[in-house]
Amino acid sequence: MSDLTEPVDETETEAAVSIPGTVSIGTALWQNPLVGLEPRRTAATAVILGCFSLLFAVSHAGGVVTVGGQPIDTTTTLFDSLSAFVIVFAVALIVAGPIGYAVWNGGPVGAVVVALAPVVLGEMATGRYALGLDGAMAMTTGVVGCVLGLYVVDVRETATLRPWRVRTCSREQLLLVTAIALIGVASVARFVSSAPDLLWGIYAPFAVLWLVPMGVLGRYWLAHARGTDSSRSTGAGSDAS
């Protein structure tokens, strides 16, 4: 008697039960190299940002929500400790988060999100919507992380520290990263032009970091220009023959 059971193709089963319009953690956004190279690491970063957002919301609520006419944060010292932790958490995300994320998981856009998330939450909470010292620092480290994220993706795919000698990233990716860098330069330049000497003195060490995106992007654009010139020369030679 023959066995009536047949092996089931797991991929077919997953396709059969998938719901149109849904996006799993291993597809679409999570697998986009502009966001991150490894979906699990991208998801872990999203969880970290989500936890920070929750802690920030609780800390902010402590100064807004009142009990008996007094803010909650004045009734217990727990909120003081929470606020201090949130500040340290935010500084770490702004200063080290983008560069660390870029080296760990690539993803130029993901690095920018890590840098700007604390600043955006702070602006929304205060209703200020003006680029201050924290915003200038976040824009700087965000641009550095963005460019490094593009570089890390190419290094891992080409297995060389000079990926532009093997191949260059797509022009669309390079244009996106360059546009983000230019926005960052314009924003920080506006902050520096109007910042008092005290704030400029605090930001000054971060100004050195701009050498990194300038150097890497310059090398990429030079490689693209050479590739365009060589392709034109090859095309002209073939037409002449």
Rank of each mutant, 00 (worst) to 15 (best):
L4V: 12
P7D: 09
V8C: 02
E10D: 11
E10S: 11
E10I: 15
T13D: 03
A15Y: 01
P20I: 08
V23K: 07
V23C: 02
G26N: 10
G26Q: 09
A28P: 02
L29M: 11
P33I: 13
P39K: 08
P39R: 08
R40G: 12
T45H: 04
A46P: 08
V47I: 15
F56P: 03
H60Y: 05
G63C: 04
V67W: 08
Q70W: 06
T74N: 05
T76G: 03
S81G: 09
S81K: 05
A84P: 00
A90L: 00
A90D: 00
L93I: 06
L93Q: 06
P98K: 04
G100L: 13
Y101K: 01
W104V: 07
G107H: 05
A115T: 04
A117W: 10
V120D: 01
G122D: 03
E123P: 00
M124Y: 03
A125T: 02
G127L: 09
A130T: 11
M139I: 04
T140R: 11
G142S: 07
V143M: 05
V144D: 06
V144A: 09
L150Y: 11
V153N: 15
V155R: 13
P163I: 06
R165T: 13
V166T: 14
T178K: 00
A179I: 10
A181T: 11
L182V: 14
V185Q: 03
S187E: 09
A189Y: 07
F191W: 12
S194G: 10
A195D: 04
D197W: 12
L199E: 15
W200H: 02
I202R: 11
P205Y: 06
V208A: 15
L211T: 12
L217T: 07
H224W: 02
A225Y: 05
S230H: 10
R232E: 14
A236H: 07
